[in-house]
């Protein structure tokens, strides 16, 4: 079973990388791009076969290590 953990900076945290990407897009002539925020995706291969348990395990990992909840939020998706 695969779990995908998406980690983003929390809304209140300044994201200079996202800002720089946004500026670069404007520079390339992409009009109509509003705020840009960047984050990361971590893919986990899990031995667990029960989706609910897999999700709980991945969330536990995210809280303990994968995300820093002082500055980041995360979302776990389970994929077969």
């Amino acid at each position: 079973m695969k779990a995908e953990v998406t980690i983003m900076l929390k809304a209140g945290v300044l994201d200079p990388q996202g800002k720089a990407i946004g500026q670069a897009l404007h520079g390339l002539g992409f009009a109509g791009v509003g705020e840009v925020r960047q984050g990361k995706i971590i893919q986990l291969e899990l031995a667990e076969t029960d989706p609910a348990k897999a999700k709980a395990a991945a969330e536990d990992m995210a809280r303990k290590l994968l995300a820093n909840t002082v500055i980041e939020s995360f979302k776990v998706e389970i994929k077969p």
Binding site: V13, L14, P16, V70
Partner: peptide, 17 residues
Amino acid sequence: LTEAGLLPGALLRNAGL
């Protein structure tokens, strides 16, 4: 120390990247 919670807060990427 901040990651371990021994001190509060976090250290982000420098503002100028």
